[in-house]
Simulated scan of single mutants.
Amino acid sequence: MKPATRGAKAAYLFALAGLLAAAGCTKVSSSPEQGATTSSSTLQAVLQRGTLRVGDCLTFAPFGFYDKDGQPDGYDVDLAKELAKEMGVKLEVVNTTSANRIPNLQTAKVDVVFCNFTRNLERAKVIDFTTPYVVASEALLVKKSSGIQSVKDMANRTIATVKGSTNGDEVRSLGIPVKIQEYDSSQAAILAVKQGQADAMIEDNNFLAYQAKLDPDLVVTNEALVPLEYNAFGVKAGDQQWLNYLNLFLFNINASKLNAQLYKKWFGADPRYALNPQL
């Protein structure tokens, strides 16, 4: 009986080893479904296509604009060039508005959106965001002759905002009785202030400082109207591989100080705010 028992145990252990080996093979090999997820990543699509399509707002200088030769230029465009260079692909900058940033991602018209894209929980329900690459507060752009010193002077006046941005909601949250007029682009909103169709424009303080530098008749109020805004790259929801790649790209250009150098090139100063909240 003892030899038989030892034989049974040996057979049992042999069978168990076989099962474990089979299980190990299953873990090592990729299932068709896993392979499909990897191959369907935007990262792989860009590399195979040989072209990176970046959605950027080219009416939002110095983040994005057309230079005198009609070519895309600006802070965001420089970042896009660095990303394409790292990937070894050509760059195609797709002119984008605030309103169509998310639709363009969802329909795969672009691979990633820069365009001063503020991260918030509502947008995160439908797209994914990278870690921040630039931080801003918000202020008002007004005529120097307007007498407007802060948003407290805006009661019963008109504030210009851009369609699809969060600025309108932020103004309403201040509880001040103002009229909000939406425009299709930042340049249209600025023109409304210049022509007296709006008393002020609310926008990213970085952007407004650049606009005031271009026009001595304009000035930016010295205030932070909302909590700091952490702007990031937007990508189609659910593509973790592409998101990981972009986050590592941002980590590298921040660690090397390249991002800070590009910011100073376009805004004439070092970044004012840390990219992560300081606790």
Rank of each mutant, 00 (worst) to 15 (best):
101 R>M: 11
124 A>T: 03
93 V>R: 14
129 F>D: 11
129 F>L: 11
103 P>G: 03
95 N>Q: 07
114 F>N: 03
100 N>K: 06
109 K>H: 07
91 L>R: 14
112 V>Q: 04
108 A>C: 00
103 P>A: 03
127 I>Q: 09
98 S>I: 00
91 L>G: 09
97 T>N: 12
121 L>A: 14
109 K>I: 00
102 I>C: 05
114 F>I: 06
93 V>W: 10
106 Q>N: 13
102 I>E: 05
101 R>S: 07
119 R>S: 03
88 G>E: 12
106 Q>E: 15
101 R>W: 01
109 K>P: 00
99 A>Q: 15
101 R>Q: 14
96 T>K: 09
115 C>D: 15
118 T>F: 03
95 N>S: 13
127 I>L: 13
125 K>A: 10
113 V>W: 06
105 L>Q: 07
87 M>W: 12
89 V>M: 11
118 T>D: 11
129 F>G: 06
93 V>D: 12
105 L>R: 08
92 E>D: 12
104 N>I: 00
112 V>N: 04
91 L>K: 11
118 T>M: 10
111 D>P: 01
126 V>T: 15
90 K>A: 14
90 K>N: 15
98 S>A: 15
97 T>Q: 11
114 F>G: 05
122 E>R: 12
121 L>T: 15
116 N>F: 00
110 V>Q: 11
117 F>L: 15
122 E>A: 10
93 V>T: 15
105 L>E: 08
110 V>W: 06
91 L>Q: 14
113 V>H: 10
128 D>Q: 07
112 V>S: 06
113 V>E: 15
125 K>L: 06
111 D>H: 04
110 V>G: 04
122 E>H: 03
89 V>L: 09
99 A>M: 09
88 G>A: 12
119 R>M: 07
120 N>Q: 08
103 P>D: 03
93 V>N: 10
109 K>A: 07
128 D>N: 14
87 M>Y: 08
92 E>R: 09
124 A>H: 08
113 V>R: 13
117 F>S: 14
98 S>T: 05
92 E>K: 11
103 P>I: 01
106 Q>S: 05
118 T>L: 07
116 N>M: 05
124 A>N: 12
100 N>L: 09
116 N>K: 10
103 P>C: 02
105 L>P: 02
89 V>K: 14
99 A>F: 06
114 F>P: 01
88 G>T: 09
129 F>H: 13
129 F>P: 04
106 Q>M: 08
129 F>C: 10
110 V>N: 06
90 K>C: 01
123 R>Q: 08
94 V>Q: 03
89 V>Q: 13
129 F>V: 10
129 F>A: 13
102 I>G: 01
118 T>Q: 12
101 R>I: 00
91 L>S: 10
91 L>C: 05
115 C>G: 02
94 V>D: 03
94 V>C: 04
90 K>Y: 05
112 V>C: 02
105 L>D: 02
97 T>K: 07
92 E>P: 00
97 T>R: 10
93 V>K: 14
119 R>T: 01
106 Q>A: 01
112 V>E: 09
108 A>L: 06
122 E>I: 04
98 S>E: 11
99 A>I: 10
128 D>Y: 03
101 R>T: 04
111 D>T: 02
99 A>T: 11
105 L>V: 09
104 N>R: 13
117 F>Q: 14
109 K>W: 01
111 D>W: 01
111 D>A: 02
97 T>G: 13
113 V>K: 12
98 S>C: 04
87 M>P: 06
94 V>E: 03
111 D>K: 02
98 S>L: 07
123 R>T: 02
102 I>V: 15
110 V>R: 10
